[in-house]
Structure formats: C-alpha cells, structure tokens
Design a protein around this nucleic acid. Structure first.
Lengths: 171, 171
DNA sequence: GCTATTTCTTAAGCTATCTTATTTTTTGCC
DNA sequence: GGCAAAAAATAAGATAGCTTAAGAAATAGC
C-alpha cells in the first residue's frame, strides 16, 4: 500500500469524524493531534474506548471490517491530521497484496493488544490502580488531556478521579 | 494451512493449558468442549476474559504474537478437544501464504470484535444489563456454565449475580 | 487582555456492589 | 446410589464509587 497515495485530512478540535449508524469506511492513522473513540450509554454518559495520539490507528473495527453501521463515535480532541485507510471488508482483503495484508495486521494487532490489556485492567484493578497505570502507559497524554477525559477512560466520574488524585498527593 | 495436518489435543476438565510466565506457542481452536481464559488479580480473585466454546479461537494474543511470556491463564471448563495453531510471531507471518494470513486474520478479527463489544459493555452497562446481554449472546453457554463463572465474566461476585437473578425473577 | 464557558475541587449523602457468614442445593466422582 | 465437595441462595453490614451542588481555577475564543 503506497502511503504517498493515501488521502490525508485535517479535523478541527471537536470535529466528529464518525458517528453511530454510519458505516465506517476508513481506518484513521493519526499523524499529528489526538482523537478519542467513545460510546454513549442509555443515561447519556460518554465512555471513552480509546485515545489515538500520533502514530496510532483507530476505527470502528466492527463496522470497518463487516460494513455494518458503526456503534461508536470518533472525535478530534485537538486539531488532528490523519491518514485515511480505505475499508477492508473481508472480501476486499483478497484485492490486497500479501505485504499489505500483513501491514494491516500489524496496525490492528497493536490495537488489539491495547484493548485486551484495557479489558483485563478494568476487570481486575481498582480505579486508583487504573489511574496509575494510565499515567505510566501514556505519560504524554496525561499532560495533554483534561481530567474529565481521563476519568471517562479509566471508567469513573471526574469528581471521583479528583478524589483519587487528592488521596495520592497526600501519600 | 492444511487443517488435516494440525495437531489436535484433548484436555480434561480443570486442566490448565496456559499459565502466566509461559510463552503461548499456540492458538487453540475448540472442536468440542469449552475453555476459559482469565487473569488473577492482586487479591487472588479470578476474572474471566473469554469463554471459548466450539468453533471459537483463543490464545494469549500478546504472547502468541510477540513471543513475550503470557499474562493469562487458559483452562478447560469441560473435557475439551482443541486444534493447535502454531504461533505466529510477526516475523513468521512472512513464511505463511497469503491465504493463510487472511485465514488467521479472520479468526483473530472475530475475537477482536467480541472483545471490543465486551469492553464497551463493561464501561457503559450496569451489571443487570450485562447479565441480560450475556444470556442473549450466549444462550447455549448460559445453560452449561455455573453461575460462578458467569458472574466472573460479567464482572460481579456470585452473590451479587444471585441477587440480580432473584430480582429478575420477581418481575 | 477580557469574559464566558468549561473544568476542577471539595463535600455530603446515596446506591450499587462487595464481604462475610450461614444454610440449602447441586454436582462430581467412587 | 451415596457421600464429600462445590455451588447457589440468602441476609446483613461495609465500602467504592456516584450524584448533586456550589465555589474556585483554568481555558477558549474573541
């Protein structure tokens, strides 16, 4: 896949790149800036699935792979430049070269590993542990993101994360 | 990849197929029976990441892909027959044919989609909602698995799941 | 630079979920 | 088929994390 040929695009802060119901026709590779993907629950609360800073890849993988309508949002947290990878619903994989399939694999696998870790962490760790883990895993993001978004990512309310921070300070 | 040539193996109930610290050299495709993969937290509690009944695939994907020691357990819940897929640390992918890479992709993708759904569900739904979702998604498993394991999967204690059930009965 | 808006902190009361303990039921296995 | 062991139900008290609210601090955008 010749990267030079792929379209790039720039989104402003708060631009919504994907919303539920729409088919996700691209994977987004972030060149500069940061995206968030999230779902909104029945009570209207936002839950962040993934942050996507420079060098990472994001998509609604289910929609991207199967052509079904997306269930998630993808939105720019900062002004963000992305490279667009055309979608690869299963049949299309046959059109790619072997190297391209492997290349695609690598990007996907990196995401899978992160998602797996995240699931284990949500199941097996306390909020405080998840916060410390986040700091260690994304030291750069920690400085760039508002507390509110970090709270949504680790799965607590901003008020509670504020408490956690205070308690950690005391130690 | 010629399926006829791949090794199959049968494990007894409670047999531990993979444990943390060991490199996961195989992906396990379940022909008959059911496996669970799980982590154990600091306080010794077990958290189920995935059930793997007939027709599904499981592995410690991080270990399988990168050759690093595994962080998870994989264990037979019932007497289980599996087909062993040799590991595919990145460099090895080049040894496979394009069709084999795509085949591998398909198995992985199915798991990824399930994991993504699960993460969204844990973040955005209540325990009761997750229980109902589990029943709908795995009607066959629900009858086969002890409550204790379902509780661990949806992320609550068995006592609390027992409460949830009772409350649902009343309705 | 100023102002409106958003974010963060703090605090108090509340609820979902956990812990521990006991009893009853079910299951694995000889 | 019977018995030991595991699982499930029930209940009561404990706690992590939520809600609401209000003031302080930071920030976006003009």
């Amino acid at each position: 896949m010749n990267l030079e040929k792929l379209e790039t695009k720039t989104y402003n802060r708060s631009a919504i790149i994907l919303r539920p119901g729409v088919i996700c026709r691209f994977g987004f590779y972030v060149i500069k800036g940061c995206l968030k993907s999230y779902v909104i629950d029945n009570s209207g609360k936002e839950h962040i699935l993934q942050f996507t800073p420079e060098g990472w890849f994001v998509s609604d993988i289910e929609s991207f792979m199967t052509g079904k309508p997306s269930l998630t949002y993808i939105e720019a947290i900062e002004k963000t430049e992305v490279r667009l990878f055309p979608n690869l619903i299963s049949e299309n994989q046959e059109l790619l070269s072997k190297e391209e399939v492997i290349e695609q694999n690598h990007k996907l696998i990196r995401n899978i590993l992160a998602t797996n870790k995240r699931l284990a962490s949500i199941l097996a760790s306390t909020a405080e542990e998840r916060y410390l883990e986040f700091l260690k895993t994304y030291p750069s993001l920690f400085q760039r993101l508002p507390l509110k978004l970090i709270a949504s990512y680790i799965g607590v309310t901003p008020e509670y994360l504020s408490d956690i921070r205070r308690r950690l300070m005391k130690k």
